[in-house]
Amino acid sequence: MLIRIVGTVAVVFVLAASPVAAHDEFRIVGSIVATDSRARVLTVRMIPQPGDDADVVERNVRIALPTWVTTERDGKPIALADLKAGLYVVVDATGHDYTDLEAVKVRIVPPPPRR
């Protein structure tokens, strides 16, 4: 019994520790496609940056909005409800890859100049 409990706890800790190895910082620049305030998820159409990896293409990225996320516009805090589709944002997030992102800070920025 003792060995079983210790083994179970050890497995839980190992499983909990492994994801942190790939904990990374991401910056996503793009426009909001949708916000789901109940599920606290923001969907952003990201704009690839020069120098990004080849696998970074214009696509929709779903970003979780934890309770501690900072949201701002012109340096002033705003409510989650102010994140509306069509607005341009810069999102600093952490995660394993583009399918597993959690926002740390969301900034509403002006739209890009028309070309």
Partner: peptide, 12 residues
């Protein structure tokens, strides 16, 4: 068991 789990946790 608790002490053992703590020891394993410390190692991890």
């Amino acid at each position: 068991a608790t002490a053992g789990a703590c020891a394993v946790a410390m190692v991890i």
